[in-house]
Write a protein that binds this DNA or RNA. Sequence first.
DNA 1: TCATTTATTGAATCAGATTCATAATCCGCG
DNA 2: CGCGGATTATGAATCTGATTCAATAAATGA
Lengths: 241, 241
Amino acid sequence: MSTKERKLREFAEREQRFLDVARELIQRDGLLNLAMARIAEESDYAVGTLYQHFSSKEDLLMALVTEDVRMHVDMFERVARWDAKPRERMFAIGVADMVFVRRHPEHFRLAQYVLTEVVWGAASATRRQILLDANQPLGAIVHSIVRDAVTQGDLELNGLAPEEVCVGLWSLTMGMHSLVHAEGMLQDFNVLDPYRLMCRHLQTQLNGLNWRPLFDATDGPALDALIERICHEVFNDLCSQ
Amino acid sequence: MSTKERKLREFAEREQRFLDVARELIQRDGLLNLAMARIAEESDYAVGTLYQHFSSKEDLLMALVTEDVRMHVDMFERVARWDAKPRERMFAIGVADMVFVRRHPEHFRLAQYVLTEVVWGAASATRRQILLDANQPLGAIVHSIVRDAVTQGDLELNGLAPEEVCVGLWSLTMGMHSLVHAEGMLQDFNVLDPYRLMCRHLQTQLNGLNWRPLFDATDGPALDALIERICHEVFNDLCSQ
DNA sequence: TCATTTATTGAATCAGATTCATAATCCGCG
DNA sequence: CGCGGATTATGAATCTGATTCAATAAATGA
């Protein structure tokens, strides 16, 4: 059924077009002004056709987030494949986040909105599940790094479940994303480069966990050098600029 | 001008009524189904009157968050007045967060929504500023604890600004709030009591900063005992159950 | 008490998401 | 090819709910 396949492909291409246009409109006019009719118009399709793909506006937003998450996963997978000590890999996860936001500055803003009760609840169950599934590898990769560290004797859990270690580190990064994107919140704290700060705190926290080899978080140049090295060795093509 | 005062008081009382009713409706039907007309109806006022107080629905939501923040500040102030070592006080800030969410389970969900680009942008500038001002003491108190620690020789900054220490700790707590409230995100991580975990990671991070006296985060019972003690000494009336 | 100012009301308006009857297109078959 | 039924696209009509504002009521003060 080559014709059926073609249909499917064309459908997928159209969906991609809608998503691309939506992204462009968000970029241009802000999420606040995103209108379904506008997306349809700019894509040269009718509104009804748009709704053939997305059961609601929220559904579409969730699809956008899912797309981003896939790229995020791709970056985490590079880290997983990177031949380095678990501690370095774990730190590289933080660097991945940093590089990711640089390339997708709108992602966390959008993700934050989509994870909101209101939007989450208004999207279709299917789309929610797809997002959760897409996210799943992120946790799994971090989890496996923690397990490697334990196996190699670099980290003792001391009664903590490996997942709980993950959640601790994840809180730190997620929290920084939230703070950065919460308009006005960081204002009084004049932080120049929040993501570099996040990296430093990540090292601090890893030290607190006594995850060997310890890293002197105090040594700014060493921190920058490590970040630089990871960019080169792991995210080479994504780190220009 | 007793009559003018009375007017003012009545206006404030009515505003409070609107807020209370809104909170109740959110509690009952969810944020998703909150409608301005419903709020007005349940408050026995006309829609137009509601708009006399809040320039938009988003404005009203922001006012709700601001109310909560004031209580949050009250708790932080107790910590600031608490006669204990800076490290204990800093930890108590985390405990304050934990107790606060228990008493206001809807707060962070709502706050997360309100800090979203869409809602933030749709509220009035005045209301935004009021929220920011209400928030300000939270940061200031944490900041002062950090400074105390440095003054008393319990903590070296090693090139970090005091604000940057704050931001690191704040990321951790904010991130945990975000994770807890992001539907489905923590699912795979089966964390029983995320806020207790947050407390533990907070201690870990403070250790990582080499903030004396160090605390053995590994010692579960000691952690629980400390949390318990803080509840008793600082948040006695708020900690029942 | 009455004129004037101020506040309240809720029906009308408006914006924008969503639906669905109609029109167009596609597909397999003779 | 051309036809009839099935599938898909269309966009005007509908629906929802926020917001406005002309009409009405209440308060003020001379």
